[in-house]
Design a protein around this nucleic acid. Structure first.
Lengths: 193, 193
DNA sequence: GTCTATATGCAGATAGAC
DNA sequence: GTCTATCTGCATATAGAC
């Protein structure tokens, strides 16, 4: 417990993220977060002026990161190579980060997040990311494929149930499937039978 | 408003489903549901003994339906044809039903549903459905593909952003992509590059 | 920077009249 | 089958002492 000096804000973020992800935003009370940290509710209000400001705090880092990816992609030609590189970079961000669970939190709290500005921003950003993935081919199937390739990355943590599988292996599988989904995008015609 | 006699229970279900889906389960109060129906909260308690019993009421129909699909699939050989037929039947159920939004509700309230028994049952059932889709090939990539094929059906309503597109067209696109995802399952080796 | 104490409000739920 | 009235509890949030 070395970090008790000054690190309180970070500890609040970490605990809140964990509880929000597990139980949901609405079901997690500030009392619960405070108890877990062995402080009082009032202490939380010193660090964050409201409950949803806690959410904002850990969503913002991700927004920046996604913005960078989008900007990078838009500077590239809309080729398959670009799409693949983009999803790979995104997967790196998801798997590498110290807190991969920000996206899990987001997935698990979609509806609630609609009414939070942080949530709306994140929603918008993921839309733009999907757009960057199908850029140059806005056919319905390309749109669906692009979105699903993001889901491949997001859901591999639970969709792959094999026990004891490593994160690196999950990432590899996710990208294998994502690549296949991206392949037909931008082709003259989809792989209709 | 012909159904005002006796149809109250159904009207409650319909409004609750809509609000739960849009705003989330926790954020939607019984007061809000009651106001929308122009009745009092107490009236709701005549029809349902608790808030989560409302959820249970509209989840149960779906459970049965999914159970039938699973049972059917398990009676078939684990071939690609079976997988494709299964996802097609599932898509029919999703798109045909009078209330396709039950699954939307479920997607949007995952975390909250963890603590509701109806939610746990639905979770379990979707897991089994995914298993039925990769039956005979439990490789990690097959598991991910099977899960994503379900997502293709579930998410086509928002992932495909083309305006004025019909439900039938969405269903067709979803199945096109789902079929592609299912194709490599059960093959000697995945389509590694 | 963290505390105690408290304000204020709405949630889910029940009792019992009509 | 729907109402009014009310219970009980916990939520977010604030004021002000230490």
């Amino acid at each position: 417990m070395r970090e008790s000096t000054g690190g309180t804000r970070e500890r609040i973020k970490a605990v809140a993220l964990e509880l929000f992800t597990e139980q949901g935003y609405e079901k997690t009370s500030l009392r619960e977060i405070a108890e877990r940290l062995d402080v009082t509710k009032a202490a939380l209000y010193y660090h964050f002026k409201s409950k949803d400001e806690i959410v904002t705090s850990f969503v913002e880092d991700r927004l920046e990161l996604i913005d960078e990816l989008i900007a990078w992609a838009e500077a590239q030609p809309p080729t398959l190579e670009t799409r693949r590189a983009l999803i790979a970079r995104y997967a790196d961000a998801m798997f590498t980060s110290e807190q991969p669970s920000v996206m899990r939190f987001f997935e698990q709290n979609q509806t609630v997040l609609k009414s939070l500005s942080a949530g709306q921003q994140m929603r918008g950003r993921l839309m733009k990311l999907a757009e960057a993935l199908f850029r140059g081919d806005d056919s319905p199937s390309a749109q669906l494929r692009a979105t699903l390739s993001l889901f491949a990355v997001h859901t591999s943590w639970f969709a792959v149930r094999t026990p004891h599988i490593s994160d690196e292996e999950r990432r590899r599988i996710a990208l294998e499937v994502a690549d296949e989904l991206l392949a037909p995008i931008g082709q003259p015609a989809g792989p209709a039978r």
